[in-house]
Write a protein that binds this DNA or RNA. Structure first.
Lengths: 223, 223
DNA sequence: AATCAAATTATGATGCATCATATTTGCTGC
DNA sequence: GCAGCAAATATGATGCATCATAATTTGATT
């Protein structure tokens, strides 16, 4: 799943390391608070520090990693305030994606979405949280792709990069039914109803993300 | 004007060079098609190649620069397709900013906006295109700041980075009245009418940007 | 045993040497 | 005079040595 490949990806080592770290973030292998060390990573990956530094600097720039002090690179914690801002942005942007996708979707596109939802249902009954998270994400990005908005894809990818560690942390504490809210989206997509699709995605982000907000509020008031 | 400083900016040389190149892009000193060479820049700036490489890699990642072949780093040309996508995104995001700002604006905020608009009017009568562009940009970002949305600021900054060379190129061929559409925004802001502010900003982006679209379509059909 | 300071270590920043390869230049032979 | 190959050059990629400084450890003193 190479989201960034719309820009023709130069296969320099830095980009490879970047993809690696992105996947670690999105799949929750890097948890909030985890520290990264350039030399350590370079040794693990068998490269010099240069490509690792390139990758980490890229992630720091887009705030998927934070450099709290000049020597301390960590996966940042999400704050309630920041989450609410991201949520408002996602509703606008993923609303745009869903609206456009609904008016453009071909039968093959609908089938692809159905497939993702079906596999997500299987994952949920199997209690496979990791797979459920991955398929949830695939659903959201499939809408952007069907809409044919590669630039928006990049923006949303960077946003999801920041939510990755958070989502993983929340769902490991007891997942919730994020899949339910995808069915109304599918209904709107089948009817080619852009406005309804946008509303349904907004409801998914708001209601489906309620568990995340509660988790953040609990952590922030606890300290 | 350091837009990225919401993230506490590490004053490493790479970030300094990055800011420098950003300003060059935003103010049209780097035109579409211009080629950048790491060694050359490093020599001009009196640093080694490392910080320059850091900065350029960051800009390539966010597609403010493009690496067409592995040895060829250039300011990319905007396409009509891409511009239309960016425009749709801007209408959603800057609409969110204007809407939020209108409901939050204090008298001092309104005064700051008035000041920007007034100075922009002066620049327009003085035919000072560069200053007009700069103040236009300041107006848009002031809305985001008043709204208190630092994360959105970062997203929009990256988007504007891609439009910088284009806007400069268009307005050097004969500027247009981008200021007119700011007055309805101000009216909505004064009344605290979020919905009206969002609509007015949308109109600014659509109508005020018409010249840009025409320029792109002319260039693309000409080849 | 506690405290503070000096030494050590860890780690990102920076500069730079070298490599691989794409581009340009120029020479050779037809 | 031109085609084509070879040498030279240009340039980003990579690795690595060194630096500055923050964190940690150590040890001496009280």
């Amino acid at each position: 799943m190479h989201y960034q490949l719309d820009t023709l990806e130069h296969d320099n080592l830095g980009s490879t390391v970047y993809q690696l770290l992105c996947n670690d973030l999105l799949q929750g292998r890097l948890q909030p608070g985890a520290r990264l060390k350039i030399r350590e990573l370079a040794e693990q990956l068998g490269t010099s520090v240069t490509p690792v530094r390139d990758a980490i600097l890229r992630l720091v720039q887009e705030q998927a990693l934070a450099m709290q002090s000049p020597r301390d690179i960590r996966v940042p914690y999400m704050t309630v305030e920041r989450y609410l801002e991201i949520r408002a942005i996602r509703i606008r942007l993923e609303g745009l994606a869903a609206e456009t996708a609904a008016t453009k979707a071909q039968p093959a596109d609908i089938a692809r979405l159905e497939d993702i939802v079906a596999r997500n249902a299987v994952a949920m009954t199997a209690q496979d949280i990791a797979q459920g998270c991955a398929l949830n994400q695939q659903f959201h990005f499939a809408l952007v792709d069907i809409a044919g908005l590669p630039f928006l894809h990049g923006i949303l990818y960077r946003i999801w990069l920041q939510m990755g560690p958070l989502i993983a942390a929340v769902y490991q504490q007891g997942g919730s039914a994020m899949l339910d809210y995808h069915y109304p989206v599918m209904a709107a997509m089948r009817q080619g109803d852009g406005a309804a699709a946008a509303l349904a995605i907004g409801d998914d982000i708001l209601s489906g993300g309620q568990a995340i907000l509660l988790h953040l509020q609990a952590r922030q008031s606890a300290g």
